[in-house]
Design a protein around this nucleic acid. Structure first.
Length: 959
RNA sequence: GGGCGCAUAGCUCAGCGGUAGAGCACUACGUUGACAUCGUAGUGGUCGUAGGUUCGAUCCCUGCUGCGCCCACCA
């Protein structure tokens, strides 16, 4: 069946008859074909089989099309335009004269891909950055990649293994070439993913922590530290990772609780048949035993101190020593001392001048002073073998099962070994002193503040930082060794050679560079320097250094933040940044940590695909409350999606009514209409609130203020208020009539409001904001200049708020009484308050439209009194009221009011309250009591006279 | 063992010395007028527990309970 779009609809919307489309009667649920007829009368089918609502919209958009305008699509699809925008221009454009500002982006691992934690971190940074740009600052937001030494080397080695089916036998140079190749081909995928999320860093300034500039910065600082005696090489016990075969720092150790066994071993006393029993979880290390320690106050063993025991299986005599380290409460009270394989034993050994007996190689296989049968066995195989032998020899007293915490490497996942090796260390304790001072003096502030406790705690107990790693992928340590082992630390090989030549007094010195590379976090600690081109680019460094903000997770406060502060103060004499915003951890909807093994990982890119990047950004920001982790399920993003759809549709409405953008010479300070003033006031407050919230890093508040203004104020009320004005078309012929001027102002204000929303949303939902700004023609997106709004809106605000409460009260009453919106009601306004009566008269169109009141006029009877603010509105009911229901409603309302009033009265009767409370508070209470009493009296009067009001109704009920 | 955080509506969370809030969910009603990814109205809370400070405590202090996290130790 072929129908044509009813013309009256277009006429209503446009107010003018331009497109000659014939009208037919509208039938709900009917399918329609939309036909157009041009001036010459020929017809054209433009849309087939559409529903009626769509036919109207299509007709309207076609009309616009004729007029040369493009309309927003009806069905908002946030992802349709997301990928079409690049923010490169904004990101790289900088106003060098403006106030410098920088967000220091934590460089993601070159192997990394975007997870939801990144998404949160980068989104918050991007919001700050875009805000500062809109405010006109000279903003630098620089991306980078971290070479991630151990992770990357392990990854490439694994890939080579999978390709070749055997462990790579490549030498250093070959492997490094492979890794660089991998980096060029497959590394840094995350950068593209950041673009999907709309992160507006200046990708033209991408830095890599192993590029030449980084190398220079890293070496420069290394030399400085060495020359200042803050960096040294030495033999120490370190945490050794037998898989990576490298030392790792204390921070890279994760303790895991495991089911373990504890063995009770019998050590025979020398020249005696007696035994002393020692408990251990590491029996395989007994070959390295050099003593057994007991507590000098332990009566069981005090007589044995000074005697020797024989280490089982090798019968090596070792002394029984007295040391407080032996705790009578633990184990048997006697403990074996193995200084080369345990941190505590190392200390005890040092104290007592005991020898170090190393019995393990770098792969944690037994070697050295070990019987032949155990030699070259892996530590766990050796353990079994040792236990077997002890059992055979009757030296195993018993075995117990315990829960026991064991150190594992965070990257390799294997159990670590304490191992004595030669490593490079930074004297972190010295560097920590000014860093702690800076935070104590609030030159650096953590947000939320309580994270400073964590920082202080770690700094207080800071240990020397082992920075050398026995791997190949990383910054090679800039130290060279001469023939006699003399160390030459220099930025380059040439410099080292010069120093060596001078030292040895000859030119041709054979130097060997240190084989180790630096801890990845060493270069990370230098990130503020690397990004700004230190030490070469003085201008940028002096401009942005110490004007940074850092946004990051709490888990890298030690790894990164603390070290940047230490290095920054040391190398530059000043803190690199003043603010450290610590964001939340993103968990799954049950509050569990996301992990691949649990399978509860949410992929932010999938979310972007399903809901659009803007919705993801908005949602993450809205949940970024301080001090609480974010619980996020797949559907959580609907919050953002729905909000953005709402705004999108509001803009469509504005566009359809020719108010998508305000006139050029429009001055918001000249608006006169109360609706205009009301929304101007609301938007001004919103912008101020948003500014405050963002300065306080309260991203949740930022989104809430925007949401409330856009949705609750603008869409729910303002748009409904102005519809009658926009849709009134008849007066348009006289452009100077008051109605026409009013309509023009409303259009301008609406367009202005939309522009403010679009501009402010540019920081949170940049894709949509950009799309909308193009559609409605906002030339320059800047921060709304609400400081220029000097208009006094207070009268209008009071008026409109009043009208709002009338509408809400009437609507509420209707629902309660079951009088639904299709039915119009008569109403009268009680005359006692003339001002209010006039107000209702003035807004009778709105009351009619939004509260379903057909007329505001005096009614003599059959009206329901509704208490609104301090007046009573009478609504005609025409016999539809159930008196008991209405009585109940009023009684309930009165109960609440009485309770409130009595609470206030009780306070006012309290002498102490009157004396001690703030006079404003007392005044407020007094006013509240008066207001409530007024209302209560009115309701009471109504209840008592219900029968009079409803005489007819009661009669009907009785009949 | 030392430290930190959290506890508010069925759920997720704001708030905060002076009348307890939002979103989701739920209930009722509503689609030809920007939007059902929607609208209108509503149900729902002794603000974990016991004390203290205060004229007044959900809010500040202390104890307790529960949950989460960090550091250290563990023969």
């Amino acid at each position: 069946m072929l129908y044509q779009v009813p013309f009256w609809i277009i006429q209503t919307i446009c107010g003018v008859q331009t497109v000659p489309v014939a009208a037919q009667s509208a039938i709900a649920n009917q399918r329609w074909d939309l036909m157009l007829q041009n001036q010459s009368g020929s017809q054209e089918v433009r849309k087939k089989n559409i529903d009626f609502g769509n036919s109207v919209l299509y007709a309207w958009s076609l009309f616009k099309e004729f007029a040369g305008e493009k309309m927003l699509e009806k069905n908002f699809d946030p992802k349709s335009f997301g990928k079409n925008f690049s923010f490169a221009a904004e990101a790289s454009h900088r106003n060098e004269k403006a106030e410098p500002f920088m967000v220091l982006l934590p460089p993601p691992n070159v192997t990394g891909s975007l997870h939801v934690g990144h998404a949160l971190c980068y989104t918050l940074q991007d919001i700050i950055v875009r805000y500062k740009r809109l405010k006109g600052c000279n903003v630098l937001f620089q991306p980078g990649l971290d070479h991630a030494g151990i992770v990357t080397q392990l990854l490439v080695e694994k890939q080579l293994y999978e390709k070749n089916g055997e462990k790579s036998s490549l030498g250093r140079e070959e492997l490094l070439r492979e890794i660089w190749l991998w980096k060029e081909n497959s590394g840094g995928k995350i950068l593209e993913q950041m673009k999907v999320l709309g992160i507006s860093c200046d990708f033209s300034r991408l830095r890599f922590t192993m590029d030449d500039g980084s190398k220079k910065a890293v070496s420069r600082l290394f030399v400085k530290l060495y020359n200042d005696g803050l960096l040294y090489r030495g033999e120490r016990m370190v945490n050794w990772d037998p898989l990576i075969q490298s030392a790792i720092s204390d921070l890279e150790v994760v303790e895991k609780e495991v089911n373990a066994k504890i063995w009770y071993l019998k050590y025979k006393l020398e020249n005696s048949e007696e035994f002393i029993t020692v408990a251990t979880t590491r029996p395989e290390t007994l070959f390295g035993d050099v003593a057994v320690a007991v507590n000098s106050r332990d009566d069981r063993y005090v007589d044995l101190i000074g005697k020797n025991v024989l280490v089982p299986l090798i019968n090596k005599p070792v002394p029984i020593i007295a040391d407080d380290y032996a705790d009578p409460e633990k184990g048997t009270g006697a403990v074996k001392i193995t200084p080369a394989h345990d941190f505590n034993d190392f200390e005890v050994g040092k104290k007592h001048g005991l020898p170090l007996v190393n019995i393990m190689n770098e792969r944690a296989e037994l070697e050295g002073e070990v019987p032949e049968q155990f030699r070259n066995l892996d530590r766990f195989k050796a353990r079994e073998a040792v236990i077997d032998q002890l059992e055979i020899k009757g030296l195993l007293e018993k075995v117990e099962t315990i829960m026991h915490k064991v150190p594992f490497g965070d990257r390799s996942g294997v159990m670590l070994e304490p191992r004595i090796t030669c490593q490079w260390f930074i004297d972190a304790a010295k560097l920590a002193i000014p860093a702690v001072k800076a935070v104590k003096e609030n030159r650096i502030t953590f947000i939320p503040k309580h994270w400073e406790n964590l920082f202080f705690e770690w700094m207080k107990n800071i240990k020397p930082w082992c920075i050398s790693r026995q791997i190949w992928w990383g910054h090679r340590i800039p130290a060279w060794y001469g023939p006699n082992g003399q160390i030459f630390v220099a930025e380059t090989a040439e410099e080292a050679l010069q120093k060596a030549s001078a030292f040895y007094g000859k030119d041709d010195v054979e130097l060997v560079q240190d084989n180790d590379v630096l801890d990845t976090w060493y270069s990370s600690a230098m990130w503020p320097f690397i990004t700004l081109g230190w030490p070469d680019v003085e201008a940028e460094f002096s401009k942005f250094y110490s004007r940074m903000t850092v946004v990051t997770g709490f888990d890298i406060i030690f790894f990164w933040i603390a070290r940047m502060i230490m290095m920054g103060i040391y190398a530059a004499g000043d803190v690199p940044f003043h603010n450290v915003y610590i964001h939340a951890l993103v968990r799954d909807e049950k509050g569990q940590k996301m992990s691949k093994s649990k399978g509860n990982v949410i992929d932010p890119l999938q979310l972007c695909d399903a809901y659009g990047a803007d919705a993801v950004r908005y949602t993450l920001a809205s949940m970024a409350s301080p001090g609480r982790d974010i619980k996020m399920g797949a559907r959580t993003v609907e919050i953002g999606r729905n909000f953005l759809t709402k705004l999108w549709n509001a803009v469509r409405f504005a566009q359809m009514n020719d108010c998508a953008c305000c006139s050029k010479n429009f001055d918001v300070n000249t608006v006169k209409n109360p609706f205009s003033q009301w929304i101007v006031h609301n938007i001004k407050n919103m912008v101020i609130d948003v500014e405050n919230s963002i300065e306080n890093h309260r991203f949740d508040e930022v989104t809430r203020h925007i949401y409330q203004c856009v949705w609750n104020s603008f869409c729910d009320w303002y748009m409904e208020f102005i519809k009658p004005i926009l849709q009134s078309g008849s007066e348009i012929s006289d452009a100077n009539s008051s109605a026409a001027l009013r309509k023009k102002e409303i259009r301008d204000v609406t367009g202005w409001a939309i522009a403010q929303f679009v501009q402010i949303l540019y920081m949170i939902a940049p894709f949509m904001a950009k799309k909308l700004s193009e559609e409605i023609g906002i030339a320059d997106i800047t921060w709304p200049n609400v400081g220029a709004i000097t208009l006094d809106c207070s009268d209008s605000v009071e008026k409109i708020d009043r009208i709002q409460s009338v509408i809400s009260s009437v609507r509420s009453l209707r629902q309660f009484l079951g009088i639904f919106s299709a039915e119009k009601l008569d109403a009268k306004i009680e005359t006692a308050n003339n001002a209010f009566r006039e107000l209702c008269d003035e807004y009778k169109d709105i009351l009619q439209r939004m509260a379903g009141i057909s007329a505001v006029r005096d009614l003599d009877a059959q009206s329901i009194p509704v208490v609104v603010a301090d007046v009573v509105v009478h609504i005609g009911f025409a016999g539809k009221i159930d008196v008991p229901t209405e009585k109940k409603r009023l009684s309930n309302e009165m109960k609440k009011l009485i309770k409130n009033r009595d609470d206030a009265i009780n306070r006012l009767n309290n002498k102490d309250f009157l004396q001690k409370a703030d006079p404003d508070i007392v005044q407020e209470h007094q006013e509240r009591v008066n207001n409530l009493n007024d209302k209560i009296n009115k309701i009471d009067y109504i209840i008592r006279n219900l029968a009079n009001y409803y005489a007819d109704s009661i009669a009907e009920t009785v009949a």
